[in-house]
């Protein structure tokens, strides 16, 4: 496997995949962008559902292997570029905490935000629920108070994920407006590579909106 060969990146601005783009920029990884216009429903075409049957971005193809799921993609990419030092290596005492927080995003945080936005009860413990909204937010805040990064002094791919996730959650009022979340999200989002990804996505979103307007007008 050629670890540093370009990644095909299935992406849409203003979506979960902004985080994956931010990590690609942090890693300086070469990627070929395949932009999907979510407003035109391009994530639900049969072509794209063959890539990700869940109809969501991000997805990547690397060396002919398809990878979906935000955290899987981030863990995979960060391990591809060990020289960038964005994932504690195997044997590093921080590896366990890193994996824990990578998985916690999909297994606890997203379900908690979903229940909160839908104003519904969490799945109870006896049916293997994730826990409850308040616990998820408290546990995350407690971890971030060690700062400046999720793993303490060390910046990692987990920060790219959580900075983006909290930025989104704060914007849509799906997470509590606590200083610990605001300060952390700001710290992550102001990194040059992440700013770059954000600005490219703003330009892409504007271009997609123009295209859609033109298509509708035609």
């Amino acid at each position: 496997m050629n670890a540093h060969s370009p990644v095909v990146f299935f992406h849409a601005p203003h979506s979960r995949s902004s985080v994956a783009r931010a990590l690609l920029e942090e890693l300086g990884a070469p990627y070929d962008l395949v932009a999907l216009n979510l407003k035109a429903g391009e994530q639900r075409t049969s072509d794209y559902l063959a890539i990700n049957p869940m109809g969501k971005v991000p997805a990547i193809r690397h060396e002919d292997v398809l990878i979906t799921e935000q955290s899987a993609i981030l863990m995979y990419l960060a391990d591809l570029y060990p020289e960038k030092n964005l994932a504690p290596s195997m044997g590093d005492p921080l590896r366990g905490a890193y994996l824990r927080w990578m998985v916690f995003y999909g297994s606890c945080f997203e379900p908690a935000m979903m229940d909160f936005s839908q104003k519904r009860e969490p799945v109870p413990p006896m049916q293997c629920g994730y826990g409850d909204y308040d616990s998820v937010m408290q546990v995350l805040a407690a971890q971030l108070r060690h700062g400046p990064w999720l793993l303490g002094g060390r910046f990692s791919a987990a920060d790219v994920l959580w900075g983006g996730a909290l930025n989104y959650g704060l914007m849509f009022k799906l997470v509590p407006d606590w200083p610990v979340f605001r300060d952390y999200a700001q710290r992550v989002q102001t990194r040059p590579a992440i700013r770059r990804a954000f600005e490219m996505d703003e330009a892409l979103a504007a271009a997609q909106a123009r295209e859609l307007d033109e298509a509708l007008a035609a």
Partner: peptide, 16 residues
């Protein structure tokens, strides 16, 4: 080469 597929389905379990 199977690393990506492996991570994909492990995370899919938790996230989906």
């Amino acid at each position: 080469p199977q690393r990506g597929t492996y991570l994909r389905w492990l995370v899919f379990y938790a996230a989906c």
